[in-house]
């Protein structure tokens, strides 16, 4: 399973629509004060669903290079 090295969130641009949180297949994201936050990076499988469907350019997933 692919893993993420880090997930970058631009809190200034995030509008809190929750699309990324609700589409994440592994429940790796959560809402904190109406903005998205990483709940558990270990759970992330780097499927890129959140990044692909964020309408606000606010979440970017950096995949871990294969060891």
């Amino acid at each position: 399973m692919a893993k993420a090295e880090r997930i970058e969130i631009n809190k200034k641009w995030c509008k809190g629509c929750e699309i990324c949180v609700e589409l994440c297949p592994t429940n790796a994201l959560e809402m904190v004060d109406f903005k998205v936050a990483v709940k558990d990076l270990e759970k992330c499988i780097a499927c890129m669903q959140c990044e692909l469907r964020c309408p606000d350019f606010a979440i970017v997933v950096y995949k871990k290079e294969k060891e």
């Binding site: 200034k12 641009w13 629509c17 929750e18 699309i19 692909l52 964020c54 309408p55 606000d56 350019f57």
Partner: peptide, 14 residues
């Protein structure tokens, strides 16, 4: 120019 004017969850950004 960002953030854009579209509402939270408007799919135009996608």
């Amino acid at each position: 120019k960002l953030p854009h004017i579209w509402c939270a969850g408007c799919t135009y950004g996608i």
